Amino acid sequence: MKFLKVFERLKTNVIGMIHVGALPGSPLSRAPLSEIIETSCREAEQYTQAGVDGLLVENMHDVPYVFEVGPEVCVCMTAVCSAVRRLCPSLPLGVQILSSANRAALATALASELDFVRVEGFVFSHVADEGLLNACAGDLLRYRRHIGAEHVQIFTDIKKKHSAHALTADVSLAETARAAEFFLSDGLIITGTATGVQTDPEELRVVARSVKLPVLIGSGVTYDNVENYVDANALIIGSHFKKDGRWENGVDPDRVQRFMEKIHELRDG
């Protein structure tokens, strides 16, 4: 499986989220880039010391999000990701650039020598809180080929959070998953309705039965409910790993360590 070219195990890989500080040009931007890089690297070190299986870097503090990001975002994210890569030369690393700036994410991944990107709006149109988002699979995969980044895997959200799916109400989650597989996604991400909201465990079973692709959980995994997701190929965890369980706070090493101890117990079991 292509997934195993990035991750060492097939199931329950834990991917810790690094939410970089608000970047230059965004409304909440306050810190210089050097400080943002330093904080991101410190969190990467905390995650690796706790034994996570991978990291995902995201510009979540750049609210409100826009569909078309400027070159400053791509350049700054490349600087952050490159610094994290130097610190973690062998750990699986990915990037997501909000909102759905998927070409910028691919370019950043290529320049920073990352392994994967998280992509929104891969198949079917939907209404996100930023506006109407159309599918990008055809253009994005051609862009990946054009820049020589075919080794960068594309993990795609389906029926994504923070969105209304009335436009595709007659298209089931399983049908959406099969469409993403047909359009050559490398892995599917399912979530709850918003950041930190628990993903329905039944949806994991539905998607896993419908496709042969890896299935990742993209929101709401905690110490108390992780048993529901042991069959997932990876767990992307942000909120639960932060102080007080809030995504906007810094990483809490004790929460990460405690979670990883439980993961090891579940794997051994």
Rank of each mutant, 00 (worst) to 15 (best):
F3C: 08
K5G: 14
K5T: 15
R9G: 07
T12Q: 15
N13D: 12
G21W: 05
A22S: 09
A22H: 05
P27I: 00
I37M: 11
T39K: 15
E45S: 09
Q46W: 14
Y47W: 09
Y47S: 09
T48K: 15
G51Y: 10
V52K: 03
L55W: 06
D62A: 09
Y65T: 09
E68W: 00
V69C: 12
C74Q: 13
V80H: 15
R86D: 10
S90D: 11
L91K: 06
Q96G: 12
Q96K: 13
L98H: 06
S99A: 15
S100H: 02
R103D: 04
A105W: 03
A107Y: 03
A109S: 05
E113W: 02
D115P: 15
F116I: 15
R118A: 14
V119L: 02
F124V: 07
F124N: 10
S125C: 01
E130V: 13
G148H: 03
H151P: 05
H151A: 07
Q153D: 01
F155L: 06
T156S: 10
D157E: 08
K160F: 05
S163A: 14
A164D: 13
L167N: 00
A169W: 08
V171H: 03
A174T: 14
A174D: 14
T176C: 13
A177R: 11
E181A: 01
T191C: 13
T195V: 08
T199V: 02
E202C: 11
L204M: 13
R205F: 05
V206Y: 12
L213M: 07
L213D: 04
G218F: 03
S219E: 02
T222S: 10
A234H: 05
I236Y: 00
G238K: 03
F241V: 00
K243E: 11
N249A: 06
D252Y: 00
P253N: 00
D254G: 08
V256A: 02
M260F: 11
K262W: 02
E265R: 06
R267Y: 06
D268N: 07
G269I: 07
